[in-house]
Design a binder for these strands. Sequence first.
DNA 1: TTCTGCCCTTGGCA
DNA 2: ATGCCAAGGGCAG
Length: 279
Amino acid sequence: MEIAFPQPFDLAATLVGGQAHRWKTDGDWFSGVLRGNFIKMRQTSDGIEFRSRPALETDLVPLIRDYFRLDDDLMEVYDRICFDDRVAAMVEQYPGLRILRQEPWECLVAYVCSANNSIRQIHNNLENISNAFGNPIFLDGDVRRTFPTPAQLVEAGEQGLRDLKLGFRSPNVHQVTVKVLERSLDLDELIALPYEDARERLMECRGIGAKIANCVLLFSLEKPQAFPVDVWVRRALAEWYFPGQKPPTNPVLEQWAHDYFGNYAGYANQYLFHGRRLA
DNA sequence: TTCTGCCCTTGGCA
DNA sequence: ATGCCAAGGGCAG
């Protein structure tokens, strides 16, 4: 099945740029799991071509459009952030890099796993978690597993997570799983909350500081102003915006970005991250 | 408020 | 083969 995308779009940069963690590449094909569906897709001249199971492919079209945030008008986003020459240069270099609308629960676990962890290792952690506790789905003779529900993952316990090589992040993931299961942390509720309030709620969790909270907010909770300052964004800001001086602390950089880029700071963040990391 | 040192695992390179 | 080091944030002192 094919979907036409009347929007700037770079599938590879969007899927394997570091924001999502379960996409595997095989030539120009990308395979992953989206809300319980095993999907294989590739970019075509005017959109994407894909196959999927178990849901009917026609039923997945709205889901895929939602995942790639085709409801965001990327040209309008560019108009808002390209007043800045650095960001404009990155947009020029990587047109069509989009921010994904990920599943909040999976995104939360992924970024708790991301603390002081390399991107490759985070991919391994999530694949191990899915293989150990998710349900199998089959497509073209290949098998992947769904990301486990909170009820499935809580069974792992702290030790089960350590066995999956999560290291010192294991108790953090277990505790936040319990919170979601008990609904003392309600992710759907955070979508409706203002940015500052949702951020505060996330940061009450052990293992979630400003950076990880901002990632979850930006990639899954509808907060396009969230500006995660990780090591790459910090380097980009220090070199490009504060050259020859001692770079400000991360909280100050975050506030600076919010004042400077405004409500689409998250998109500017993603282009700076991508550009500096691949530089 | 800000700075240090510790937490775990993997993979690349002496 | 063996060991060293970098990649990656959060948090307590």
